[in-house]
């Protein structure tokens, strides 16, 4: 065992030079996980954004903005089959090249420990909204075995939260081979295991990335139909 283990950046593996200053001396010591170079490569979503899905308006053409919500959300909410199920989504980071790389290492190469990078932010948001249950988007059994872990559950566990497993996946993720209409006509991708638990609950769904929002909406719809009162989602990036 090393007496004075030096902190290594989880992403680039360089030694972390702790920043010196009064703040560092007097504040409670925080475990160093990232070097400042890597830390800076993450871009937070800031400024004006869609009230429903966190989409930043900064880079968005005015045509795709309708007041406080974006065009995509407007379309979802105009659809009787989907409106009102997902109360809101919060995303932390912009889906930039750096984030893409980190996510590839985490999810596809299976570097589980990278979940720690996001723990503080996830915990902060959890504390802010205080849901009754946190539910990770599930993987199919085949995919779970292949990866060894569910990335959304990993994010929760490493943030010190207990993932609720009342949701399972009944269809495999490999939907890309199916035609669009086949995909739309699949009534549900997910299934609820323990319905009683959900009634009247405020639920936070967790996934790594918000792309079209359809996965989250499928889950939210099912949860609401099973009695949930409020369903929000937290995704690392969009």
């Amino acid at each position: 065992m090393k007496l004075f283990p030096q902190a290594q950046c989880l992403i680039c593996h360089e030694m972390i030079q702790p920043e010196m200053g009064w703040k560092a001396i007097f504040s409670v010591e925080k475990e160093l996980i990232l070097c400042s170079t890597c830390e800076r490569k993450f871009e937070m979503i800031e400024g004006e954004q869609c009230k429903l899905c966190s989409r930043p308006f900064q880079f968005l053409d005015e045509r795709f903005r309708h007041g406080e919500i974006c065009h995509d959300c407007k379309r979802w909410e105009e659809d009787d089959d989907w409106k009102g199920y997902l109360d809101s989504n919060h995303s932390i980071y912009l889906y930039n090249d750096f984030f893409k790389e980190v996510m590839a290492a985490f999810k596809f190469r299976g570097d589980y420990v990278l979940a720690l990078i996001f723990a503080e932010k996830i915990k902060d948001y959890y504390t802010k909204i205080q849901p009754d249950l946190v539910v990770p988007i599930p993987l199919s059994n085949e995919r779970l075995y292949e990866r060894g872990f569910n990335q959304a559950a990993a994010l929760l566990i490493e943030s010190g939260l207990t993932p609720n497993i009342s949701l399972t996946r009944i269809h495999s993720e490999k939907q890309s081979k199916k035609s669009r209409s086949e995909r739309i006509h699949i009534p549900q991708v997910f299934e609820v295991v323990e319905q009683i638990e959900l009634i009247g609950k405020h639920i936070l769904l967790v996934d790594d990335i918000y792309t079209t929002g359809s996965t989250l909406r499928h889950a939210a719809k099912l949860l609401k139909e099973s009695g949930a009162k409020r369903v929000q989602s937290l995704t690392l990036a969009r």
Partner: peptide
């Protein structure tokens, strides 16, 4: 090297 290992709850 200890710092080049990590662990995870393994589904396998």
């Amino acid at each position: 090297e200890e710092n080049w290992f990590a662990h995870f709850p393994c589904a396998r």
